[in-house]
C-alpha cells in the first residue's frame, strides 16, 4: 500500500518537478503564450498543488488518466487498448521463464552437487553469464536480423498472429531465464545438501519423485523471492522489446510519449507498469504464503 502511494505521488510529482514549463515544452516553441495558458488551465495545472494531488488521486481511482497533451485523446482509452497487448507478451514470457529455469537450474544443481561436474558447472555459469549479458533489446535486434532479414522465416513487426509472438517472447525470456536458473541452481544445491534429502536417498526414492516432490517445494520459496525481482524486470523489458518489433503495447506508447513530452501519457503508462510490478510482487508473496506449510500452522 505504501509502495502504491509512493508510486502515485511520484507519477503525480513528476510533472511538477520538470524544470521549465511542461506544457510549453510539450506544445513546442511555436505555441503562443495564450495557447500555453489555455492548455495549462485545461490540464488544471494552475490550481493549488494539494487540490491537484487530490483530484489526481480521484482520477486514478476512477481510471481517468487525463488527456494526451499532443493528441488530446484519452490516456485511459489508449492504455486500455494497448496494455492487454503488453500482457500478451509478458505473461507467456513469464510462464516460459519459470518453466525453463526451474528444471534447468535443478538439473544443473544435481549434476554439479558436491563439487563434481566441474565442466558442467563452468559451462553453465559461462553460458548463463553470457546470455544474461545480452540485453533484451540487443537480442531482439539480433533475432530479427537472423530470422526476419536473413531467413525471412518470421514476421518483422506488429501483431500478426501466433508467429509474431515467437521473437519478442524469446527476446524477453532468454535473459531472465538465464539468471533465474542460476538462482535456482544455487537454491537447489542448498536443498540437496539437507539431511531430509539424504534421508530420502536413504529410502531409495526414485529420482523423479525425489526431485519433484522433495526438492522442488523447498526451493521454490527462495527462488520465487529472487524470481519476482527478475520478473518485474521482465515487465520493464517489454518496453524495449516492443519497440524493436513495433508491438502495439504500452512500451511503444511510452517511448513516443517521452520524446513528444506528452506528460499525461507518460504518467499513465508509468503508473500502470509500476502498479503491475507491485501487483506481481503481491501475488508472489501470496503464492509463497500458500506454498510454505510453516505459515499455515493451525489451519488443518
Amino acid at each position: 500500500m505504501v509502495s502504491l502511494l509512493i508510486l502515485l505521488t511520484a507519477t503525480f510529482g513528476m510533472i511538477h518537478l520538470i524544470p521549465g514549463d511542461p506544457v510549453a515544452a510539450a506544445l513546442g516553441p511555436s505555441a503562443s503564450p495564450p495557447l500555453v495558458a489555455q492548455r495549462t488551465h485545461e490540464l488544471g495545472l494552475d490550481r493549488p498543488i494539494l487540490t491537484q494531488y487530490w483530484s489526481y488521486l480521484h482520477d486514478v481511482v476512477t481510471l481517468h488518466f487525463g488527456e494526451s497533451i499532443t493528441t488530446e485523446s484519452s490516456v485511459s482509452t489508449l492504455i486500455l487498448q494497448r496494455f492487454p497487448n503488453t500482457l500478451r507478451l509478458a505473461v507467456p514470457a513469464f510462464i516460459l521463464v519459470v518453466v525453463l529455469a526451474l528444471p534447468i537450474g535443478l538439473l544443473t544443481a544435481v549434476r554439479t552437487r558436491g563439487g563434481r561436474g566441474r565442466t558442467t558447472r563452468r559451462a553453465f555459469v559461462g553460458l548463463t553469464g553470457l546470455l544474461n549479458s545480452i540485453p533484451d533489446y540487443v537480442l531482439a535486434t539480433l533475432l530479427s536480423v537472423i530470422f526476419v532479414v536473413g531467413l525471412k522465416a518470421l514476421p518483422a513487426a506488429g501483431d500478426q498472429g501466433l508467429r509474431s509472438y515467437v521473437l519478442p517472447v524469446i527476446a524477453l525470456v532468454v535473459g531472465p531465464a538465464a539468471s533465474l536458473s542460476r538462482i535456482v541452481r544455487v537454491e537447489a544445491l542448498k536443498v540437496l545438501d539437507t539431511e531430509y534429502i539424504r534421508a530420502a536417498r536413504a529410502r531409495r526414492l526414485p529420482m523423479l519423485l525425489r526431485y519433484g516432490r522433495h526438492v522442488l517445494p523447498n526451493m521454490v520459496t527462495a527462488s520465487l523471492t529472487y524470481g519476482s525481482l527478475i520478473l518485474s524486470g521482465l515487465i520493464a523489458g517489454t518496453v524495449l522489446v516492443e519497440n524493436v518489433f513495433g508491438w502495439p503495447g504500452v512500451g511503444t506508447v511510452i517511448s513516443q510519449a517521452v520524446v513528444q513530452k506528452d506528460y499525461p501519457t507518460i504518467q499513465g503508462v508509468l503508473l500502470v507498469l509500476g502498479a503491475t510490478v507491485l501487483f506481481m510482487n503481491l501475488v508472489v508473496d501470496l503464492v509463497l504464503g500458500l506454498l510454505d506449510p510453516r505459515s499455515r500452522v493451525g489451519e488443518l
Binding site: 509502495s3 508510486l7 511520484a10 507519477t11 513528476m14 520538470i18 518485474s232 524486470g233 515487465i235 520493464a236 523489458g237 518496453v239 524495449l240 511510452i254 517521452v258 506528460y263 507518460i266 508509468l270 507498469l273 509500476g274 510490478v277 507491485l278 510482487n281
Partner: peptide, 13 residues
C-alpha cells in the same frame, strides 16, 4: 521493487 529501467525512464523524463 521497481525495475531499474522503469526508474530510468521516470528520471529521464
Amino acid at each position: 521493487a521497481f525495475p531499474a529501467l522503469l526508474l530510468s525512464i521516470f528520471f529521464a523524463v
